[in-house]
Design a protein around this nucleic acid. Structure first.
Lengths: 340, 340
DNA sequence: TTGAAAGCGCTAACAC
DNA sequence: GTGTTAGCGCTTTCAA
């Protein structure tokens, strides 16, 4: 069996107290020689302290539970987990990952199991920015990742979608566009939709452009939805937009298709900007898609830092807004001299 | 603080043994009445057994460690985790997820930490099918997921890429094609590349078609790589293939672009089949891409079942080959009557 | 500078 | 049918 602390003590000819002290770096009172002897003995017998026994004694397990709604169906999960993971590792913690598929029974079960395992902290994550009703029994120091608890009272971090939407439109305005469409989703669940709309409207006003309701269209959140909505936009003839801000990259792909079918070149005839900076999609379009990145990795890091109590600004219960940077590629240019 | 077993015992007026027995369902010797009293008391004081104390005592923690090389940079991770996760939950286990980014130091550290936490089982996963050198110190009952340990000796599951490649080409042959290209990757790391080539060659032979070396081209594993390689194929003029089997969906997207640029319709003028069934890509192409699915979810399940010892066929150290099913969409049709 | 011993919360052998 | 108790492997108080 694995070596215990008493094996090390016996091998080094000291007490278990001494071994414990040395292993935990509390060496103020231990002589250098003893300390070295203990270390050698530990290595010799292949000793590794039992986290279980230590956790039982100290009531701190150096584990954190991460409950997430989806993990399988979105490519976003990864970056968030990676961020959380990296921070946990830097602080010597292991993370329990539980995927609930938004099933309340599974969620309750997860909370129970995680509690039974005495995790030091808990993170509740969703894969799309939205408002959630915190499940009953969630500890009050739980950190919400990519979602806001509807009653407040918890720490949380979400992308700054309003400002992200504003950045996108500002990018278009800076390129010289005045007729800018917002290709929105019909899906009302993600609050990102309305937040980005706010940003869109704000920048239009800021630039002295009257918002034309005809330029705010909606479609299904898919390439096909984006294509169909773009076709409606292009049907506007001389009134058609010269630039389209798409709710996300998938819809932007549809906008590309619609434009290409009409023989419109991107960005010469029409500029397109997306949202999400989705891997394997945005950068691989032809031309590569200019878009707004969702700061998943950074949010993952922030949440874990807040959960572990290693960041000062993680102590407020106001949602921490994470910046969505502009990723400039080749789908935005100046408007065409003339719209045919 | 949280309730302990002795609190329940006191509340129910019984011994801790009785409580323990009831909580663990070993009620053979407990009267129904006592049993009910204990259960009520437990609920009343809000008792949940400490997994730590139980684990220390029984030396079984009901946790499993899952070490993976990448999680952030691929959309594949999710389905594998979901499969593993689902099985773990069904068996009352929690999973520790560790992402190593293929860094050996982090890998060693992960093994150490997981061992210290006394996980009941361990899974070593990669996000692309490949051969790996097992890290030192890995327990012999570790299960390899989507990779094979180069010296053997461990249980593992990988996709049956040879048969998957064969299925793809069979699909094309069945549609009537004779000039079938294999648009391969230049990347030699994934053994999937050569396995699929074997399948391609085998089916060609089986159908009595001479393999034309000119139809086996390679490109970078990206849409651009696929486009460039496809252009070379299309440059063959009258000798051009009527169907292209692409190493993966990303490259297939490039093949679409190349075909469309030459005014070729898919599948009327050229049929295309991909591999991976990558979410948000394959199904969203125009026309939707026929492809071969990688059985990530199923492999995740298999690995966890093998790790937990709940499947009989998980006991051999030969790699378990998981079937890659054909996903029929609209990019494959009969060959054109005449090649222009 | 070091050691003895209590106790974290539980299970299970054994006694009644 | 139920209770007593040792002990899982560690940390930490207290004493030497």
């Amino acid at each position: 069996m694995r070596a215990r602390i008493s094996d090390v003590a016996a091998a080094a000819g000291v007490s278990v107290t001494t071994v414990s002290l040395v292993m935990n770096g509390v060496e103020s009172r231990i002589s250098d020689e003893t300390s070295q002897r203990v270390r050698d003995a530990a290595r010799a017998v292949g000793y590794a302290p039992s986290s279980l026994a230590r956790g039982l004694r100290t009531q701190r397990t150096r584990t954190v539970g991460l409950i997430s709604d989806q993990i399988a169906t979105t490519p976003f999960a990864g970056r968030m987990l990676a961020g959380a993971q990296d921070v946990a590792r830097d602080h010597g913690h292991l993370v329990f990952l539980v995927n609930t598929d938004s099933d309340e029974t599974i969620e309750q079960e997860a909370i129970r199991a995680l509690t039974a395992h005495q995790v030091d902290a808990m993170i509740y994550a969703t894969m799309w920015h939205r408002t959630v009703t915190p499940p009953a029994g969630l500890r009050p120091d739980t950190v919400f990742l990519d979602c806001r608890p509807d009653g407040g009272g918890f720490r949380s971090t979400v992308p700054d979608d309003r400002e992200g939407g504003a950045s996108a439109v500002r990018e278009l305005v800076a390129a010289g566009h005045r007729r800018i469409a917002y290709l929105d989703t019909v899906d009302t669940l993600p609050i990102a939709s309305s937040l980005r709309l706010e940003g869109y409207l704000a920048v239009l006003a800021e630039a002295g452009i009257d918002a034309d309701p005809a330029l705010h269209v909606r479609g299904a959140t898919s390439a096909q939805g984006g294509r169909e909505a773009t076709e409606r936009l292009l049907d506007l003839g001389a009134d058609r937009p010269t630039a389209i801000f798409c709710f996300n990259d998938r819809m932007a792909v549809g906008a590309y298709t619609a434009a290409h079918r009409r023989g419109l070149d991107i960005p010469r005839d029409v500029s397109i900007i997306g949202y999400d900076d989705q891997q394997l999609i945005a950068a691989e379009q032809d031309p590569p898609l200019t878009t707004i990145a969702l700061p998943h990795y950074e949010m993952g890091r922030w949440a874990m830092e807040a959960a572990l109590g290693v960041r000062a600004d993680g102590d407020t219960d106001a949602a921490y807004l994470m910046e969505c940077p502009v990723i400039r590629r080749d789908s935005v240019g100046p408007p065409p001299a003339e719209v045919g």
